[in-house]
Design a binder for these strands. Structure first.
Length: 260
DNA sequence: ATGACCCGAGCGTCGGGA
């Protein structure tokens, strides 16, 4: 089984990139963030062989699941997040080869740098709601993967020197603590499990020739419950995608599992 | 030292991104 996550920074600007990437990599499920459109505007016909389920809104945010295997939608919003809900969560279930299902959450976590202290508090509240929700699913014994744009650099090795200020919401101690609280539930950071050290960036700013200088960040992640983590055979960002013409500022992160 | 780029909205320029 192959899963992937990709913040595409507008699906309407990136649909050819996504269609081409799907053809080359053929993941079972691709989770998208920042589609920046309403569900009716999503170019579902651009991805032959894939079924699209979309949680959209006008202009901002927006997530989607593209699947070439059967899946069902479990939720279109994160439980426990106060209204007005933004389009930041879709949760699906695919059949497991062992029988039973695998729950796959797709999140576009709040950035937390806009809106002052209130905006940062909303980021932390969103992450706490996710922790509570994930904890309940794990206590139910569910196999769980949470993919998406977490908007958190978990550690100092997850950003280039000088790429962000110390007070940035992506590296603030509270943001990192909220990320660790997810790990403490028993989840495994897939990319770090297979690449324990070194640069494994998933984002480079459009500004200041960040990609050319490799001034990147690791903020797109896949967290896995134990049985899934034990089957993990591949987890890495597709860095080459950032070198293409008119790229997203994020690259896809691909994770692959051996059959049980 | 400073600014830098991209997207959507909508036609001024700006908020948001990270």
């Amino acid at each position: 089984m192959k899963l992937a996550t990709w913040n595409v920074n507008s699906i309407r600007q990136r649909q050819a990139h996504v269609a081409d990437w799907l053809q080359r990599h053929q993941p079972d499920l691709l989770l998208l963030q920042e589609i920046k459109c309403e569900a009716e505007q999503f170019p579902a016909l651009a991805f032959p062989g894939y079924r699209a389920e979309v949680v959209g809104q006008k202009s901002y945010n927006g997530v989607a699941a593209l699947g070439r295997v059967p899946f069902e939608v479990r939720a279109r919003a994160l439980p426990g997040v106060p209204e007005p809900a933004q389009a930041r969560w879709i949760e699906v279930e695919v059949a497991s080869p062992e029988g039973g299902g695998i729950v796959i959450g797709n999140g576009y976590f709040p950035n937390g740098n806009s809106g002052g202290t209130e905006g940062f508090a909303a980021k932390l509240a969103w992450m706490e709601a996710l922790r509570v929700h994930a904890k309940a699913m794990l206590e139910d014994g569910r196999d769980l993967a949470i993919l998406g744009d977490y908007n958190v650099c978990p550690g100092e090795e997850d950003l280039a020197a000088g790429a962000l200020g110390a007070n940035d919401a992506l590296v603030r101690p509270e943001s990192r603590a909220a990320f660790r609280a997810l790990l403490w539930l028993g989840l495994t950071d897939a990319v770090r499990a297979l690449h324990p050290t070194g640069r494994v960036y998933t984002f480079w700013d459009y500004q200041a020739a960040s990609f050319e200088r490799d001034a990147g960040l690791r903020i797109d992640h896949a967290l896995l419950s134990a049985r899934l983590a034990e089957r993990l055979v591949y987890a890495a960002p597709d860095r080459e995608e950032r070198a293409r013409a008119q790229p997203s500022d994020h690259v896809p992160v691909l994770v692959e599992f051996a059959s049980p």
